[in-house]
Design a protein around this nucleic acid. Sequence first.
DNA 1: TTGTTTTTAGTGATTACTTACTTACTATTA
DNA 2: TAATAGTAAGTAAGTAATCACTAAAAACAA
Lengths: 209, 209
Amino acid sequence: MSFSPLLKISKLICILKNLALYLQVITHFYNSILMTDKQLKILQVALELFAKNGYSSTSTGKIAKQAGVSEGLIFRHFGNKEGLLEAVLQLGEEKIKSLFAEIVFETEPKEVIKKVLELGLKMIENKEDADFWKLQYKIKWEVERYNEQKMEPVEHALNQAFLKLGYKSPELEAKLLLITFDGIATRYFLQENFNLEGIVEFLHTKYLT
Amino acid sequence: MSFSPLLKISKLICILKNLALYLQVITHFYNSILMTDKQLKILQVALELFAKNGYSSTSTGKIAKQAGVSEGLIFRHFGNKEGLLEAVLQLGEEKIKSLFAEIVFETEPKEVIKKVLELGLKMIENKEDADFWKLQYKIKWEVERYNEQKMEPVEHALNQAFLKLGYKSPELEAKLLLITFDGIATRYFLQENFNLEGIVEFLHTKYLT
DNA sequence: TTGTTTTTAGTGATTACTTACTTACTATTA
DNA sequence: TAATAGTAAGTAAGTAATCACTAAAAACAA
């Protein structure tokens, strides 16, 4: 037996974490099935308007009007405006997690980096996905909280990848790439005519050739 | 004469731009002297609250109260709430420009990169500076406009530096570094316990050794 | 006095949220 | 099976508080 018990335990924890991840995805899938049409419509409109105009600039009245629903219904289902925001954020969370799963389970180091770079392009493939990511960043700045935990498995995978590729400071390289990712997102959502593909391609040649 | 006339004109334009830059700094310096105590106090408090709670979540009433001033005075001096925001943004602009001047006039390529990296640390040396930068990013997300122009001279300087150092794609390298800068700012302002010095030091070793 | 700065006391519009009520469906009981 | 009881979904019309903003008077300085 060449594995240390400590290593085995950490592997086990990792597997359990991923299991929990999938469980949450499934639970949430069923939750969204159990929802009423109007409930879902409220969430969709809220996501759209929060992402477009921000949380505090979007009134519950406007959401209700655009969703074709009475304003009171929002408070019946989500308690208050903040509860609605939480529901919107949680509804999209499994989208992140399923995207991350691909990266976390990848073992080939270059493939990990490649998939992280591709994530940047994937996250804006359709409008609802783009709205969701935009909201994530917008909310971060509006309420000032950065959820590091969500990115932790990706950072770990990148860390391992850079380690295998013989980088001198794999932890810092992983951190830097994810920080750059935030910068790219900032530019993509805020700067007109930002050349997303160009920068992603450049990172490709920097890291993968 | 080895310089092409086109090159000389572009040099001239560059010098004129920098002259205009300094002129604006001086004008603004005098503007701030001509201001009333209460006027300045309003701007200081507005900066603080906009940076802390965002533009639309900060009411003119709260600003007036914290500044120890009547609410009407804000509208006398700045017209409306948006005028106040513009004044706040402009008041801090020369701070950026004076920081940029150091970089733009530097000719030694490695020194340019070094100064860009140091800019990240300088911008949070005192609370008011940090508030200003935080506001810049917050406002960007709230109104969704990214002022590329402001960064253009820095990008140009970086471009020249990377060119001199023999990088394959100097333009993209310059762009990438500034994008990374945005990512670092995002993390610094939003992520608790973010190790700013660590990342800046890592970039130092990546680019300057 | 004269002109500027500042405050007081408002304005209508909008905010998040509540109330009282109806409708539609489901489970239980006779 | 049919009548009844209970629950969740949904609405219209409000609430007090807060919003950006204004007009007129008051305090102040030259």
